[in-house]
Computed example of a mutant assay.
Amino acid sequence: MGDILSALIPPAVVAAVFCTFVVKLLRKEMAPRTSDGRLVSEVDDATGSTQGDATTATPAGSTTVAVEDGAKGADGSSSEVPADRPDAADR
């Protein structure tokens, strides 16, 4: 009986290490990310904010873009060509 257990211990250790590695890799790769590909936890750590701070609104007329907005909140991000606007015929 001891011979069988001693023969099975090395493959069991290798299998456990392999499974641990796969689980850690999958948890890292499937973690929530921002639109620019950064991990959400990295963004929170870098800004020092909590989840409650992520929903703060910027004042009207402000030219700053929030970190969470990325390129979507930037000026000029419209997909319309200026001539395609409805008011272009009035000019």
Rank of each mutant, 00 (worst) to 15 (best):
P82C: 07
A74C: 04
A89C: 10
G70S: 04
S62Y: 03
T55V: 12
S41I: 13
S77K: 05
D36L: 00
S62G: 05
G70W: 00
E29F: 13
A16Q: 06
P59I: 11
L39Y: 07
E68S: 11
V67G: 00
L39T: 02
A7I: 06
E42N: 11
A15E: 08
L5S: 07
A16V: 11
D75H: 11
A7N: 07
A74W: 00
V65Q: 01
V22L: 07
S78P: 01
A7C: 06
G70K: 01
T34I: 05
D3G: 10
A83C: 06
R33D: 01
S62E: 11
G73V: 01
D90L: 15
T20I: 08
A7K: 09
V22E: 04
A60T: 12
G37C: 03
L5Y: 08
R33Q: 03
S49C: 14
K28G: 09
T58F: 07
M1K: 05
I9S: 01
T56V: 13
P59L: 09
E80L: 13
A74N: 02
T63R: 07
A66T: 08
A71R: 00
A31Y: 02
D87C: 09
A16H: 04
I4G: 05
K24S: 10
D36V: 03
T34S: 11
V22Y: 05
S35E: 09
A60Q: 15
A46C: 10
A57W: 12
A66S: 15
P59F: 09
P86M: 06
G61Y: 01
K24I: 11
T50S: 14
D69K: 06
S62V: 03
S35H: 09
V43G: 01
L39K: 12
P10W: 04
K72T: 07
T63S: 10
T47Y: 07
D53V: 02
M1S: 14
T63G: 08
D75S: 09
D90G: 06
A66I: 03
